[in-house]
Amino acid sequence: MTHPGEREADRWLRCFHPRVSAEHTLVCFPHAGGAASYYHGISAALAPDVETLVVQYPGREKRLFEEPAPSVEWLADAVARALVARGVQRPVLFGHSRGAIVAFETARRLHRTAGQPAALVASACAAPSHPEARRALGDGLAGQSDTEVLTRLLGLGGTDADVAQHAELIELVLPALRADLAALTRYRAAPDATVPCPVSVYAADDDPDVPAADAALWGRHAAGGTVEVHRFEGGHFYFGSLPRPFLDRLQQTVRTARKGIAFA
């Protein structure tokens, strides 16, 4: 029998490819304005021993007519509850861009629960306490016009160019995106806030928003004070075409973290 907590969890967590014999769980957090379907390809491409859950934020796709999240902290509270209700144990949390901040705060809330994460992967995002994280992800876009915001997002590669040709699609996408940016602008991480798990940082060579030096600052927030930084070819949305080096690294990260092995 399904209880209310499990039904609520289904609203927050999408599983495109259930794998009943999977040994590892990867939980993906989309970028600002992003939706769960962006990770369908990753879910399909990973090996059968990895089951992928994707966070579905309110205000898009199947939750289109729900109010977007008012804050990063509110989102993290809700996702943590959903993971606990679903009974997810020792997942690896993968957050891309704004999603890395939400994943970080979710990891903090899962501390001392059965769902305590095995690792956090922060992709294309500066450290939470670094001002660059807010400037690049929130402050830099929050006050711009709809055209400027959409142009910026298309330039980064996070939205299909076809969307720009359809006014009705833009009207559906922009409210959630603006709400996400506003939440980021208000977000403030404590400089000493940490997660009780290893942190691996994925960054792209041609991403103007996350220089190599900024990626390394995630060490401030990691257990033990150090992180592994892995760099990939491409821009901010470097994994959009599912490059093999990215998939191999992600799969290795999931497997080694779940077994308690240090990242290689």
Rank of each mutant, 00 (worst) to 15 (best):
P58T: 12
P58M: 09
G59P: 02
G59E: 04
G59R: 02
R60G: 11
E61L: 06
E61N: 06
E61K: 12
R63K: 12
L64Q: 14
F65C: 07
E66M: 11
E66A: 08
E67L: 09
P70E: 10
P70H: 03
S71A: 14
V72H: 02
E73L: 13
W74V: 13
L75R: 05
A76D: 06
A76R: 06
D77Y: 07
D77N: 10
D77S: 04
A78D: 11
V79Q: 03
V79K: 06
V79I: 15
A80W: 07
R81N: 02
R81P: 00
A82P: 07
L83W: 06
A85W: 04
A85G: 11
G87R: 12
G87S: 12
V88Q: 07
Q89G: 03
Q89I: 06
R90Q: 15
R90A: 14
R90W: 09
P91H: 15
G95V: 10
H96Y: 08
H96T: 11
H96K: 09
S97K: 11
S97V: 09
R98P: 00
G99Q: 03
G99K: 04
G99L: 05
G99P: 01
G99E: 01
A100H: 08
A100W: 08
V102N: 02
A103Q: 02
A103C: 11
A103V: 01
F104N: 13
F104L: 07
